[in-house]
């Protein structure tokens, strides 16, 4: 079991969360070329090592989190809320 330290709820089992995907993907402008959109939607670096990824605390506070995790050992390096404003609030709370 992976334990994820949600900035709002505290440390919880990963089974409370839903895995999103690679957090480093940036979507291009709406009028960008088909080729740019294809790269953003379908192509992934698929890192073997530490990767930034999104998790949704589905059975908790329902925040989207950005988690840095090793895809080899599953060790978690850092967790923060995806939305920068929420990240500020949760930091003030703690």
């Amino acid at each position: 079991m992976i334990r994820i330290k949600c900035p709002y709820c505290g440390e919880r089992d990963h089974s409370e969360f839903t895995y999103g995907g690679d957090a480093s993907v940036e979507y291009p402008a709406l009028d960008a070329s088909v080729s740019d959109w294809t790269k953003a939607i379908f192509f992934r670096e698929n890192i073997r090592g530490n990767q930034k990824e999104t998790w949704h605390h589905t059975n908790g506070c329902r925040l989207w989190l950005e988690v840095e995790r090793s895809t080899i050992t599953h060790e978690i390096k850092s967790v923060k809320a995806c939305h920068p404003q929420i990240d500020k609030i949760t930091k003030n709370n703690s």
Binding site: M1, I2, D13, Y19, G21, Q51, E53, T71, T73
Partner: peptide, 13 residues
């Protein structure tokens, strides 16, 4: 196992 991984071992859930 619902998340990306290169570990050849499964999770308990």
């Amino acid at each position: 196992d619902w998340y990306k991984s290169y570990a050849q071992r499964g999770n308990l859930p």
